[in-house]
């Protein structure tokens, strides 16, 4: 696809503008969070970190952070266990109705969180149960699990069957094979799925507002309710901290995964590229 220089410049310039639109607004909040005046808006006249210190003294913020962390860790743990099991079944066992199960497990991605929020709340009410942490947890598992299944499934499909067959031939049973062969090879994808579930649970607000007990705030819900008043500097600081957290966690995960996989690259990579018994062509001087 060849293009004139003018077309390329126009496309490039337009793309840069769109990226600025996507990324810059968030930096505005971060910049404002370090602004000394108490009123949380422009102009920026100096630099201070005291608004961040104030967050730790605010019991409402601390409680909300604890709630969100508990919820997100529990969600990610449950969603990962169930999701990996389902992904393994979908990739390795050609059972009847697999296509239907696949569709069913992917479908929640297309259902608006609003609908899941209202529906699960009303289903709980029919059972005589009220809004609770459990309701939030179950809902978050249902919302995040499809993403764990998709990432894990993708990775499992890339692991050649003969590795598991070899393990079985050498006398390992199904569970041993899964634990010793499949799991280590799929681990990066599973970790990615776990972090993804953790982050989306931590961030979820649309459905969570329907499930939380009265006056029971997660971090995003706390921010949302504070926004009903004017934007304070403390709120800007909390928002900036959230930006740092939500960029930091995935970036850190990616770095750690990169270090981890490159450290054990040899055993992990060989089966991906070529079967172990074939001569490696990589690095072959031709």
């Amino acid at each position: 696809m060849r293009h004139s220089r003018l077309t390329l410049w126009l496309l490039g310039g337009f793309t840069l503008l769109v990226y600025a639109y996507k990324i810059l607004p968030v930096f505005v909040v971060v910049a404002l969070a370090f602004n000394p005046p108490e009123f949380g808006s422009f102009p920026i006249v100096g630099f201070t970190t005291r608004w961040f210190g104030g967050l730790l003294d605010n019991p409402a913020v601390v409680t909300a952070v604890k709630t969100s962390l508990r919820l997100a860790v529990a969600t990610a743990a449950i969603a990962t266990v169930l999701g990996v099991a389902a992904a393994y079944a979908l990739v390795r066992y050609p059972f009847r109705g697999r296509a239907a199960v696949q569709l069913l497990l992917t479908m929640p991605i297309l259902v608006p969180h609003l609908i899941v929020g209202v529906g699960l709340l009303l289903a709980f009410r029919i059972l005589g149960l009220s809004r609770s942490f459990t309701l939030m947890l179950l809902g978050h598992v249902a919302l995040t699990m499809p993403f764990v299944i998709l990432t894990t499934q993708h990775r499992l499909q890339a692991i050649p069957l003969y590795l598991e067959e070899a393990s079985r031939t050498l006398g390992a049973n199904g569970w041993q094979t899964f634990r010793e062969v499949t799991l280590p090879l799929a681990a990066p994808a599973i970790v990615t799925g776990f972090v993804f579930a953790f982050m989306s649970s931590f961030d979820e607000v649309t459905a969570t507002l329907f499930w939380r007990p009265a006056n029971f705030d997660t971090v995003p819900i706390y921010v949302l309710s504070e926004l009903q008043n004017s934007v304070s500097q403390e709120l800007n600081a909390l928002a900036a901290a959230l930006v740092g957290f939500s960029v930091g966690v995935p970036v850190l995960t990616m770095l750690l995964l990169h270090l981890w996989t490159s450290r054990r690259r040899r055993p992990a990579r060989a089966p991906e590229a070529t079967p172990a018994w074939q001569p490696a062509t990589e690095g072959d001087a031709r």
Partner: peptide, 8 residues
Amino acid sequence: PSWISFVV
């Protein structure tokens, strides 16, 4: 940006 909190 899509990692960053939707509310923020």
